[in-house]
Amino acid sequence: MSGKITFILNNEKVESNGKPSDRLLDVLRNEFELTGVKCGCKEGECGACSVLIDGVLANSCVVALGSIHNCHVTTIEGYSKTKRFEVLSKAYANFSAVQCGFCIPGMVLASEALLSHNPHPTEAEIREGISGNLCRCTGYNAIVHAIQKAAEEGNGLW
């Protein structure tokens, strides 16, 4: 069977015109105009381009389009419509955890990926959970505290 790469993007079935070897990051930003997915390095080193693929955190810059055929892909644009996002956003706001904001969409998805596997993480587990997402502004504390708070407030959501 030959055709196009299809996948479920933010709960909607889509078909991409991209090549299988294209970076998922570029496809999401350019073809689907989902610019909440940020590009910080193009080598899987900063996490700004984090998305969820079948619920699992991935750096979309080092994912080839061909590898996600029929997968569920969630970007911040899709995730920001969820209840869980609301809880996380409120917690991030409480600690003024958003500074320049460039790492934040990725950081929020890393928070989701962590909490969905571990609803009540310890501080060390949170730090590990976001260890692939570089932030140069906050020193990470506010983000760590926000995730702790979200875990408390969102009891039962994760």
Binding site: S89, Y92, A93, S96, G101, I104
Partner: peptide, 11 residues
């Protein structure tokens, strides 16, 4: 709440 919190966190 920071002035630019919502647009930044939602992408």
């Amino acid at each position: 709440k920071k002035w630019d919190h919502d647009p930044k966190i939602s992408g």
